[in-house]
Amino acid sequence: MSLRDLPVFGPTEVLDDEGITPEVIVRTDVALSREQLAAALGIAFSDIAADQDPEQLTVLQTRTEIEGMLTAGGIVSIDNLLARDQDTEFTAERRAVMDALRRAVDRAYPADTSERPPVHKQDPRYREGTVTLDTVDHGEVTVDEPAWCIGHDDDTVGYLADVTHNGAPVTAPIVTGRYGPSKIMTARISHAPHAVELPEPFPLLSVELDAHGDLDPADGHNLARALRLAAVRVERLVAELEAVRRAEQ
């Protein structure tokens, strides 16, 4: 069997190095044996998911972890070379070569200088149980509008697959002496019924968590209280989500 006859999977998601500002996305195909796939998953699983039952790994989780492991190795190697080069005094000849290499990169991966299409704000038209929206790929569409959705007046015109119904946000605030007031959680009921890459046949719980920093004991107690509040509010929202799902079945 030739390489072109092999099944192709991925990329499942775009992986990046959090320490840099990305400018392009580079995609590459790697032919692997099942033993290599299992080894990559084994390393990732032992690092971040050792407390999870491997039998419960979803297809999305498995592919994401394997692709992440393959990508991480390359990024770490590149970062190590960059760190080494920062401490190296290059000759004029070597600097000229590196400048030429940068120009080669610019030719191979040109910056997006094309004029981006203007961003248009939605002008939703609501009817009983429906809303009419504009899309860039299907024109004007009329879709079901659930009662729990807060509307689309602040949305921008995008693809049909990106049309998302969002419920009212539920937050968990925290105030610390070091960082002041902030939110450690924002959650809501959400549903993108026309999503293609990651289909959403039913509404989901959309959650954003933000908690990091160095805390003294008093702020540690503040964090614990905020987390307990977040847990209570998530439980209530999950109950609402379950009711929404039952009503739609």
Rank of each mutant, 00 (worst) to 15 (best):
T176K: 13
D153A: 09
P169M: 07
R127Y: 09
V157Q: 03
T142V: 07
D162T: 05
T135N: 08
T156G: 01
E145H: 15
Y126S: 08
H152L: 05
D137A: 06
G180H: 08
V175T: 15
E140K: 12
K121M: 11
D144L: 13
P124Q: 07
P124Y: 12
T113R: 14
K121G: 12
A161N: 09
Y126I: 08
E145L: 06
K183G: 01
D155Y: 02
E140V: 13
D137Y: 10
T135D: 08
R178Q: 13
G129A: 14
G129L: 12
Y126N: 07
T132P: 02
Q122P: 06
D123V: 14
D162K: 07
P110G: 10
A172P: 02
D162P: 08
R178M: 11
H152D: 05
V141G: 07
N166D: 09
G180R: 08
D134Y: 01
R178G: 14
A172E: 03
V163M: 06
E145K: 05
G139E: 06
V157D: 02
A111T: 11
V141E: 04
Q122W: 03
V119E: 09
T171L: 04
R178T: 15
V143Y: 00
Q122G: 03
D137I: 08
V119H: 07
R127F: 08
D153F: 07
G151Y: 05
W148H: 10
G151K: 05
R178K: 15
R127I: 03
R116V: 05
G151L: 05
V170G: 02
E128F: 09
G180C: 13
R127G: 15
D144A: 15
S182G: 15
T142P: 00
V157N: 02
V143Q: 04
P117R: 11
R125G: 05
T130F: 11
G177W: 02
P110T: 09
V131W: 00
V163W: 02
D112L: 12
V143M: 07
A168F: 01
D144M: 06
P173Q: 08
T176I: 12
T176F: 11
A111V: 11
